[in-house]
């Protein structure tokens, strides 16, 4: 595991220590993070769910983050799209999607939260589901995925059988399959520390996503917000810029990962795909299996071809 993190750091080329800032993410009643108090289906009971209709400040904050996440999704402006809202809760982010003319499906593990969504008469279809069990729709269903204040819940093991890295991986890899090529998933989330951030991003990359974290208002403890922006099937995406950073696209307030899953395969002791070693190994394997006749390795094996080809 340690190796994993070290390598990840190398790849991102960014010192994640500065992300050790305290994230403001506590409930009003207590100073502890909700994820530490109870499993989500227990924490989001009727009382907690009710706040999402009655606490106007909370509603305002969630809506603002949803609007920003939708902006980061960069859906085609004039086309009605089909979007998945993960941890949709009472449907606030869904309402923001409806306002933008899009259609959506919301999933959440808490029935009381979904009950509130029904009561609010949101437009989207809803279903009860645990993102850690995976997301199961036909390939290429969604034009985009949005998730507000939910992802950090996956970092906790709420049952003996829960293994957070596995649950994260299952979530991201199945999610990837449901998304259209070139579409994005944007998660506003509250990682507890740099370790969690690394865990989340590394599992997302392993599942095939590229992307990174956009930090809005990094210098303000109150306004600071983090958005994990993932791209399905895009090799060199341009990460959007954080708000209030005064930075251009490659500013220091984004953590950019171009490392594809191939790089992460290294962690499992296998050569990088398409690397020289990988090609060699594959040829070797094929030879052993007696398949095809391969050119002997040359000094050109595994090198990038020049443009001329």
């Amino acid at each position: 595991m340690l190796n994993f993190i070290r390598l990840f750091r190398l790849i991102s080329g960014i010192n994640l220590h500065r992300l050790h800032t305290n994230f403001i993410h506590t409930t009003m009643a207590s100073c502890r993070r909700p994820e530490h108090q109870a499993p989500p289906e227990v924490f989001y009971d009727d009382t907690e769910a009710r706040k999402y209709t009655s606490n106007s400040r909370m509603i305002e904050i969630q809506m603002t983050m949803a609007d920003r996440a939708i902006e980061l999704l960069a859906l085609p402006e004039d086309k009605p799209c089909f979007v998945l809202d993960v941890g949709c809760g009472s449907g606030l982010s869904g309402e923001a999607l409806t306002e933008h003319g899009h259609f959506w499906i919301g999933m959440d593990i808490s029935k009381p939260m979904l009950g509130i969504a029904e009561e609010r008469e949101v437009e989207g279809d809803l279903f009860v589901g645990d993102m850690g069990e995976g997301v199961f729709f036909r390939p290429g269903t969604f034009d985009g995925v949005i998730s507000i204040s939910a992802l950090q819940w996956l970092c906790n093991a709420d049952k003996k059988t829960h293994n957070p890295p596995k649950r994260l991986y299952r979530f991201f890899s199945t999610l990837y399959g449901t998304m259209r090529r070139g579409s994005r998933a944007v998660f506003q989330f509250y990682p507890e520390n740099s370790h969690q951030l690394e865990l989340i991003t590394s599992q997302a990359m392993r599942a095939g996503f590229s992307g990174g974290v956009v930090v809005d208002f990094p210098n303000s403890t109150r306004a600071k917000k983090m958005f994990l922006c993932l791209f399905a099937g895009l090799l060199n995406p341009q990460l959007p810029t954080g708000l209030g950073t005064g930075q251009g696209p490659q500013g220091s307030d984004q953590v950019a990962y171009s490392g594809q899953r191939q790089r992460f395969r290294n962690l499992k002791g296998k050569p990088l795909k398409k690397s020289r070693d990988w090609i060699k190994e594959k040829k070797e394997r094929r030879r052993r299996q007696g398949k095809g006749d391969f050119k002997a390795d040359s000094k050109y094996s595994g090198r990038k071809r020049s443009k001329k080809f």
């Binding site: 999933m107 593990i109 029935k111 979904l114 009950g115 029904e118 809803l126 279903f127 009860v128 589901g129 645990d130 069990e133 995976g134 199961f136 036909r138 390939p139 290429g140 049952k159 059988t161 596995k166 649950r167 991986y169 299952r170 890899s173 199945t174 990837y176 399959g177 449901t178 090529r181 095939g208 099937g233």
Partner: peptide, 26 residues
């Protein structure tokens, strides 16, 4: 129920994390 499907699995029904999803078109 109430128009909301409950897709939660029981322990033991959860598959392995994996790329088994046919359509990743990877």
């Amino acid at each position: 129920e109430n128009g909301i499907p409950n897709m939660l699995l029981n322990e033991g029904e959860v598959g392995d994390a994996g790329p088994s999803q046919s359509g990743t078109s990877q």
